[in-house]
Amino acid sequence: MQAFIRHEGLVVPMDRSDIDTDQLVPKQFLKRVERSGFGKFLFFDRRYLNDEYEENPDFELNRPEYRGATILLARRNFGCGSSREHAPWAIADYGFRVILASSYADIFYNNSFKNGYLPIALPEETIEELFQREAKYRPYKLNVDLERLVISDAYGLNLSFAVDDFRRECLMNGWDDVGLTLRFEDKIIEYEKARGIE
């Protein structure tokens, strides 16, 4: 997994709540057996006008001022719905490194940390302020520092945020979860022995 320590990038605002994983990656793209290459399917139904990938010029990601954006700004309950990790794969493959929203669906939030980008939950007022700053200073960049747990911009913004310690450590080091758990394999064996699990 790609490690994340700090990142500076362009912000694209998506003024919506309940951006569900069906919107992030529609079902027709779930049939692949690979993990890679999902970026071009991200937001497929709204991003393209047809199945030939003709871009919808009104969609945020297609607007010239948001090309190359790596930080996605949205509202409430981001990533609700299906558990499909294809959605995080698509977000990471598209090139997003940070998501900013006021809340996340649990499964999506959890899946994100396994894919090298950082979902940050901020209070609704703070999210509103970021939408306003983006409109005012466009093109708007943010600097996200996972080591210091601070988000800053070039106009004096200095926000702190929280991520639990274990997830932060894994993401900063790019660690693989299975490998980490297997460091405690003796505990698993002990548990199984005590219950007669062979």
Binding site: E85, I107, K114, I188
Partner: peptide, 20 residues
């Protein structure tokens, strides 16, 4: 509970899940 694919792999390999 539902999980993503990384956690399907985690359970396959370890029969456990890291949870809060």
């Amino acid at each position: 509970m539902g999980t993503g694919t990384s956690e399907v792999e985690h359970v396959l390999a370890t029969q456990t899940l890291r949870q809060k």
